[in-house]
C-alpha cells in the first residue's frame, strides 16, 4: 500500500507540474448532451480561458443547484423559458449587457422578445427544442399517432420517457385533451390515472440520453427531445420520429447570468463565441436541436435540414406549446410525480 501511495504521489507531482498559475476561467452549468466537448476545447485554445463545465438534467435540478451554491459559484446557465421567469421573479438573474456581444444580431428575431422575458433583458435564446415520439419501425409495425397509442399492453416494458415531471405530466394532460399547463385538480387526477395505466409499459426514465435505449434496442418506443430523436434516426434509419396529434412540449433554452457571476468578461466572450455561425453549426451538428441562428441557417448541411425531427418545420413547430410557470401548483405536480414513480 505504501508503494501504491508513492506511485500515485509521483503521478500527482507530474500532473501538478503542468498546472499554470491563476488562469482566467468561466464556470458554466449546462444541460448534459448540449455542447460537444470539442467546442469547449476549441474555445479554451482560442481564448486561453479555462472552462469549468458542470451539467444538469432538468430545470428543477438547475434551480436547486444554483440556489444551493453560494452566489457567484456559476457564471453562465441555460434555463428554459419558464425557468427564466421563475428565476427572474426570485431575483436570481443579472441583466445581460447586449453591447458586449458582437454576434447578437445573428439571432433569429422570431425567438426574441417572447412572453417569458419580453425584452430579453435577462435571457438570450440558445436553441429551441420540442418533444417527439421515436419509434423503432423494425420492432413496432402499428401506426402511432397519439400518446394514447402508447398505452397498448403490447409495449410492456418497452418505452423510455424523459425524466422530467412537467414534460411527462404535461404529456398525460395532452393525451386526455387538456392544456399542458393545466392546474385543475380534476384534470391532473385524470392525468395521474393515465400515467398509472402507462406504468407497466415504462422501462426507464432518462433525460440525459434516452436515444441510447433506442439505439441499443433496449426499448422500441421513446418520448424524448427532438435532437435525441433526430440522432437516433441518423444512427438507425428504421427509427421514425412522430409528432403526436395532441401536440407536444416546446422549449427554448437560454443563456442567462446568475446573480453574482464573477467572471463577467469571460462569460460574455463565451456567449459571443457560441453565437458565431460556425460554432453554432458544430453544436447543431452534434446535437441537432432547432437552430435559431440566422447565419448558421445558411451553412447547415442537408443531413440536418432534411431531418424533420432536427430542423422542425415551422407548421409543425406551431402545434407545440410551452411549459409555463404554474406557481404553487408545482406541489401537486411534485406529488403526482412521486406517486407514479
Amino acid at each position: 500500500m505504501k508503494k501504491i501511495i508513492l506511485v500515485f504521489l509521483m503521478l500527482l507531482i507530474l500532473t501538478g507540474c503542468t498546472k499554470k498559475e491563476e488562469q482566467k476561467h468561466v464556470n458554466i452549468l449546462n444541460w448534459s448532451s448540449y455542447i460537444p466537448d470539442s467546442v469547449i476545447r476549441n474555445f479554451e485554445k482560442e481564448t486561453n480561458i479555462k472552462v469549468n463545465y458542470g451539467t444538469y438534467s432538468s430545470n428543477e435540478e438547475l434551480l436547486a443547484k444554483v440556489s444551493n451554491a453560494k452566489e457567484g459559484t456559476y457564471d453562465l446557465i441555460f434555463p428554459s423559458d419558464y425557468m427564466i421567469e421563475i428565476m427572474k421573479n426570485r431575483d436570481m438573474l443579472e441583466k445581460i449587457d447586449k453591447t458586449k456581444l458582437n454576434n447578437i444580431n445573428n439571432l433569429n428575431s422570431s425567438y426574441l422578445n417572447l412572453e417569458y422575458d419580453s425584452n430579453n433583458d435577462y435571457s438570450l435564446p440558445f436553441i429551441a427544442a420540442s418533444t417527439v415520439i421515436s419509434v423503432n419501425r423494425d420492432l413496432v409495425k402499428d401506426s402511432i399517432t397519439s400518446y394514447n397509442d402508447l398505452l397498448n399492453p403490447k409495449y410492456k416494458n418497452d418505452i423510455v420517457l424523459i425524466d422530467d415531471q412537467r414534460i411527462i405530466i404535461g404529456m398525460a394532460l395532452l393525451a386526455n385533451g387538456y392544456d399542458m399547463n393545466s392546474t385543475d385538480e380534476k384534470e391532473l387526477e385524470v392525468a395521474k390515472e393515465w400515467l398509472l395505466q402507462l406504468k407497466d409499459n415504462i422501462k426507464a426514465y432518462d433525460s440525459d440520453s434516452p436515444k441510447n435505449f433506442l439505439i441499443t434496442k433496449e426499448v422500441s418506443i421513446a418520448v424524448l427531445w427532438n435532437a435525441e430523436g433526430a440522432l437516433a434516426s441518423m444512427e438507425n434509419n428504421s427509427i421514425e420520429n412522430i409528432f403526436p396529434n395532441e401536440g407536444f412540449a416546446l422549449s427554448i433554452d437560454n443563456f442567462a447570468i446568475p446573480k453574482g457571476a464573477k467572471n463577467k468578461e469571460e462569460l460574455y466572450i463565451f456567449i459571443d463565441y457560441i453565437l458565431r455561425p460556425d460554432v453554432m453549426k458544430e453544436i447543431i451538428s452534434s446535437y441537432p436541436y432547432k437552430n435559431i441562428n440566422k447565419e448558421t441557417d445558411k451553412i447547415l448541411n442537408d443531413d440536418y435540414l432534411n431531418n424533420k425531427a432536427a430542423n422542425i418545420p415551422d407548421e409543425i413547430y406551431k402545434q407545440g406549446s410551452f411549459v409555463k410557470n404554474v406557481g404553487d401548483s408545482i406541489r401537486t405536480f411534485d406529488k403526482i410525480w412521486a406517486e407514479i414513480k
Binding site: H25, N27, S32, N52, G54, T55, A69, T73, Y74
Partner: peptide, 14 residues
C-alpha cells in the same frame, strides 16, 4: 463537489 472539482466517479456518473 462544485464547478472545477469534478472527480472521476462524478464524471463517470454523468
Amino acid at each position: 463537489a462544485g464547478p472545477g472539482s469534478n472527480t472521476l466517479p462524478l464524471q463517470v456518473y454523468s
